[in-house]
Design a protein around this nucleic acid. Structure first.
Ligand SMILES: [Mn+2]
Ligand SMILES: [Mn+2]
Ligand SMILES: [Zn+2]
Ligand SMILES: [Zn+2]
Lengths: 146, 146
DNA sequence: TCCTACATTGTAATCATTACAAGTTAGGAT
DNA sequence: ATCCTAACTTGTAATGATTACAATGTAGGA
């Protein structure tokens, strides 16, 4: 189950510790863009000896090796993403969920033309996600109530 | 000098205190996207009795009234902007400067088509700004040294 | 199996931000 | 011009995320 992650870590000259494997696996199976504490709290259930510091250390190491990415959208918390290809995000101000938006920024060349050397592209929207928008609509217009 | 800001604050039913006026004025004359402490440190020189808490309070109040915007780009710090129109940013990883990028996101309709209700659009690039890029080039290819 | 460089752990420190309570003031009312 | 009070400022203490550190444990090569 963890084989591909073990290979990945070894390619980067990192030890394949159970903690790191669990963290990578969590990110790959939960596309919720969790923060460090979300991961800590989730893994704690099956690994009670896990330390919060280990989660921070592992995330930092994986980020440095470009195995995962971190995203800064809500102030005061860093969230993590197993996807390392450039893509956009949507933060729902109602349910606090961050979802992926499949977009490619078409302006990169224009910015580079201005003399900027782009290393990372970040785009995100804030607003109300489809699920929350529907719920709100139902509240205000409960026509088709079953 | 502060008249327009006084008017602005009164329109929003806010008291035109010297602290708020200085903070607004600082943001309008320094397009560096400073954080709260930058502003505090700068204004302290002429207003030694200023409190850091006042800076945080004022920024929060102005943000709520949509008189200024806050941006979250570097983890762990909120930076502020007198511009409230939607525009993009560039964070230079060498000199830590955030500069404005004049771009309009052309993908908004596509995202809204997916059922999302967009309230804010944020776009930023990380990399090396033209000034820092030039300095680096000179280091490596010092052909035209005067 | 042994060894040790690399990792994990728990605790203490740090740093940005927020909460709070006491003192001050902007600006409307008189 | 003076009074009054809700709004504001201030200093300090609390909070919450993250980092530093020192002791202990272990992955994985020899
Ligand atoms: Mn993502
Ligand atoms: Mn700006
Ligand atoms: Zn939502
Ligand atoms: Zn620069």
């Amino acid at each position: 189950m963890y084989e591909p992650y073990i290979t990945l870590l070894k390619e980067h000259h990192l030890k394949a510790t159970p903690q790191r494997l669990q963290i990578i696996h969590y990110l790959h199976t939960h596309h919720t863009h969790p923060n460090a504490d979300d991961i800590y709290t989730a893994l704690r259930h099956t690994s009670p000896s896990l330390s919060r510091t280990t989660v921070y250390n592992a995330l930092e190491t994986l980020k440095k090796e470009n195995i995962i990415h971190s995203i800064t959208i809500s102030a005061g918390e860093t969230r993590y993403d197993a996807r390392i290809d450039t893509h956009h995000h949507f933060l729902c101000t109602t349910c606090n969920t961050i979802s992926d938006i499949e977009l490619v920024c078409p302006n990169i060349k224009r910015v580079e033309g201005g003399g900027y050397c782009i290393e990372e592209v970040h785009g995100y929207f804030k607003g109300i996600c489809p699920q929350c928008a529907q719920k709100q609509e139902r509240k205000h217009e409960p026509k088709d109530a079953a």
